[in-house]
């Protein structure tokens, strides 16, 4: 639900370089471009997705916006506040969750972790106990709040992180791959909470590798690659980019790289993605000629190697593959 077009977040030509060294005896400095003139605008109340392959600049973007990284050049602002100049004020108004289990005090209980983080965000002392209980209830940890975090499952830790980030009622939330590593039920629960927060009016920026998640949750999505925006729009807009395509899925056994290259070279084939599933491989072949492509594709693979065959419409994932040109 896009509430209005007021810019809650703005990035203007943001570049971010990282310096690293290579070599053991002779060290050579090397510059890595993480963000290469990235420009974005997110409206207030919007749930905005950032997609991209590993190393595309998703996490760097989030870290710039959460004041953890200073851009090499360009400007970034949250709620009209510059993330470099007004960093302290920005921090009061935002919350963030980075994927993974770290970032909690394991020897403390979940409840004590929340109390401490509430102090860090200067939540008034009288408000802390009810707020902590309210959030433990929201993330389904009220009954386990007195247990030490070291005994929590990964999903519980992620939910505790989400509660942690909501303590001071932030106006903008940054969620960097919040469902990474969660089991399907845990991930669905987290998505439900994110949806609920969005309904409550929060501006949310979400990065994810799960395209169905972005499709389900986001109002708009930016696909970034090599530190630049390569596509921007609603999930339907992005899917419209591949409305001319169908996807033929071939389940195959033991095909080699040269066969995949042969498929890619076929005139009617737009792209081929190979997914390894134990002994089988699933080839996802984007094509403009739909069912008519099936017979020549099977012939190209060698009929004896083909198992299940299916033809379906292109999804957001297919749009993503077309945009980014590769999958991880």
């Amino acid at each position: 639900m896009l509430r209005d077009s007021v810019g809650a977040i703005e990035l203007r030509d943001v570049r971010r370089l990282f310096r690293t060294t290579t070599g053991t005896l002779r060290r050579h400095a090397k510059e890595i471009v993480a963000l290469d003139g990235l420009s974005l605008e997110v409206g207030e109340g919007e749930l905005f997705g950032i997609l991209g392959p590993n190393g595309a600049g998703k996490t760097t973007t989030i870290k710039v916006l959460t004041t953890l990284l200073i851009p090499t050049s360009g400007t970034a602002s949250v709620l009209g506040l510059d993330v470099v100049r007004d960093a302290k004020e920005v921090r009061r108004k935002i919350g963030f969750v980075f994927g993974g289990e770290r970032g909690l005090y394991y020897r403390l209980s979940g409840r004590d972790n929340l109390r401490y983080f509430a102090e860090l965000y200067a939540v008034p002392p009288r408000e802390i106990p009810p707020r902590v209980e309210e959030l433990l209830e929201l993330v389904g940890l009220r009954d386990r709040g007195d247990e030490r975090v070291e005994g929590y499952s990964r999903g519980m830790k992620q939910r505790l992180h989400l509660a942690r980030t909501l303590l001071h009622r932030p106006r903008v939330l940054f969620l960097d791959e919040p469902t990474i590593g969660l089991d399907p039920i845990g991930a669905r629960e987290l998505r439900r909470i994110v949806s609920q927060l969005h309904e409550g009016g929060a501006t949310i920026v979400l990065t994810t590798h799960y395209l169905f998640e972005a499709d389900e949750l986001c109002d708009r999505i930016a696909v970034i690659d090599k530190g630049r925006v390569v596509a921007l729009g609603t999930p339907d807009d992005l899917k419209a980019n591949v409305s001319d395509l169908s996807v033929v899925e071939l389940e195959v056994f033991g095909i080699d790289a040269s066969t995949v290259e042969r498929l890619r070279a076929l005139e009617f084939v737009d792209s081929v993605v190979v997914e390894q599933r134990e002994l089988r491989q699933v080839l996802r072949i984007q094509t403009r000629i739909a069912e008519r492509a099936v017979a020549p594709l099977i012939a190209a693979v060698a009929a004896g190697q083909v198992g299940r065959v299916a033809v379906r419409e292109a999804t957001l994932e297919d749009a993503y593959v077309r945009l980014v040109g590769r999958v991880e």
């Binding site: 004041t67 953890l68 770290r102 970032g103 394991y106 965000y121 200067a122």
Partner: peptide
């Protein structure tokens, strides 16, 4: 090491006081 440094640094609290 515990992964809390980023959370402390990105909070409005004084790092020195913490």
């Amino acid at each position: 090491w515990t992964g809390t440094l980023e959370l402390l640094a990105a909070s409005p609290a004084s790092f020195f006081v913490v």
